[in-house]
């Protein structure tokens, strides 16, 4: 592997790493393999589409041209849980849906993460009644909660980016292995802006 030719000058590899793969701290030689894997996971996490109600519409809108989830390697909504890494539970989970939700979650390959999108999924929201599961965390371990009814696409992107940060830092999976619990991170709501879209990146 070529070395930098001198101070201030970058090698091809270094340049690629700096500009093309912004988040990578080490280069390919010095990185711990675990970091590399986490980095790759964070940047190609595909969501399982689990749209349930109004929030699903916003989730699809986030995948559309204007918000362009593809920037984060997330545009491929997989119908098959076997191909998905992140389950975005978008909307209200009814008592009848809960077993299906759990089954889809069980069918997903490890490593897997869950975003609870919207107040309905997080806590039952305004529907505190017999039909709705009061918080999807009773059924699956939740890593990030996105607030809002519906969360704006900006909020969803913020939640996704936060999760990407967590995936990259790696403690998440260790913790799941130990306690079976999700990360339980609450992000702030981001108001929908006029174009151009403001995106708050998650802390890395």
């Amino acid at each position: 592997m070529s070395k930098p030719n001198g101070p201030g000058e970058k090698s091809f590899v270094q340049g690629l790493l700096d500009d093309g793969m912004g988040g990578l701290q080490h280069n390919a030689i010095t990185a711990r393999i675990e970091d590399l894997v986490n980095w790759a996971r964070a940047r190609s996490s595909w969501p399982a589409n689990f749209g349930l109600a109004c929030c699903a519409i916003e989730m699809m809108a986030t995948g559309g041209a204007h918000y362009d989830l593809a920037r984060f390697g997330m545009e491929v909504f997989r119908a098959s849980p076997r191909q998905a890494d992140i389950m975005i539970v978008a909307g209200r989970v009814s008592q009848k849906m809960a077993p299906v939700l759990r089954q889809v979650y069980d069918q997903m390959m490890e490593p897997k993460w869950v975003i609870s999108m919207g107040v309905c999924a997080s806590s039952g929201g305004m529907f505190n009644n017999y039909a709705i599961v009061q918080g999807v965390d009773q059924v699956v371990p939740v890593d990030v909660y996105a607030p809002g009814c519906p969360p704006t696409p900006e909020t969803l992107i913020h939640a996704i980016e936060t999760l990407h940060g967590l995936i990259e830092n790696g403690q998440l999976l260790k913790r799941r292995a130990q306690t079976g619990a999700g990360a339980d991170v609450h992000v702030e709501a981001v108001p929908a802006g006029d174009a151009p879209v403001q995106v708050l990146l998650g802390t890395r």
């Binding site: 806590s123 505190n128 009644n129 009061q134 936060t162 940060g165 967590l166 990259e168 830092n169 403690q171 998440l172 913790r175 619990a181 990360a183 339980d184 991170v185 609450h186 998650g202 802390t203 890395r204």
Partner: peptide
Amino acid sequence: EIPVQFTSPNPGHADRMEPR
């Protein structure tokens, strides 16, 4: 209806993990 039982959203909440 079940009573709403929000856990504390504060960082002090024992079971939470902060983003790095």
